[in-house]
């Protein structure tokens, strides 16, 4: 038992890939929720009503400066006491989505701030309803810096999914650990999981860069 055992690696590949599906499911659905939720948080934070803007801002800052792991514990262990019982997978997706919504909210905020003031003034001058103003004028312009930044958070979410193993979600990392404790071989499964994340995040980063270039030239 010394170097990397390729036969063993091949043998455990199907089990890892099976768990990889869970990892991807978590990342994609968590990202989907974070993208939508973040928009509401950003709009709430920009609201003219201080009773809405201030607590939203405080919540975003608080969640951003505390660990995802503890937030997952709160969702998984605390919420059931208040009648909201979730499966580990549901709790994990909700937790990671909530955490990253606070990051995407900042992305939206920066994007909206980058829209020239004159555009806001034009919207006011045209007397557009706030919803129409956002939908038809402001958002399309803010999208250019926003999209690549969101893409980068998809990568971050993907790399954070192993944290969900702490609340008993069997994603790819947990599966690798299980294989390790069954067979007492850790080198192959954990290295393969590392490669899995490395390949996916490098690939996604390449796509984000391409997107960025396309948006750049589309102007």
């Amino acid at each position: 038992m010394n170097a990397f055992d390729w036969a063993f690696a091949l043998e455990i590949l199907p089990r890892l890939l099976d768990a990889a599906l869970t990892t991807i499911l978590i990342a994609v659905s968590g990202f989907g929720i974070a993208v939508v939720l973040g928009l509401f948080l950003a709009l709430g934070r920009r609201s003219r009503h201080r009773w809405l803007a201030w607590p939203t801002g405080a919540l975003v800052e608080f969640i951003r400066s505390t660990p995802l792991l503890i937030q997952l514990y709160v969702v998984f262990y605390v919420l059931p006491n208040y009648g909201l019982s979730l499966t580990a997978l549901q709790a994990g997706i909700l937790g990671i989505a909530l955490h990253y919504a606070c990051y995407t909210a900042e992305v939206y905020r920066a994007g909206l701030d980058a829209v020239p003031r004159a555009q806001w003034e034009a919207v006011t001058a045209l007397n557009l309803a706030p919803l129409a103003a956002y939908r038809d004028v402001i958002l399309p312009q803010a999208l250019r810096p926003i999209l690549p930044a969101l893409g980068n958070y998809l990568i971050s979410i993907l790399k954070d999914t192993p944290v969900l193993s702490a609340i008993t979600v069997v994603e790819i990392m947990q599966r690798a650990k299980n294989i390790g404790s069954e067979t007492f071989r850790y080198l192959e499964p954990i290295t393969m999981v590392g490669l899995f994340f490395l390949i996916l995040s490098l690939g996604l980063a390449w796509l984000v860069r391409r997107l960025e270039n396309r948006l750049e030239t589309a102007r």
Binding site: P162, V163, M173, G180, T191, L198
Partner: peptide, 13 residues
């Protein structure tokens, strides 16, 4: 590119 928790596990296990 590879996840932090994977790195910690790699170093630990």
């Amino acid at each position: 590119g590879s996840s932090l928790l994977v790195q910690l596990f790699w170093l630990y296990f």
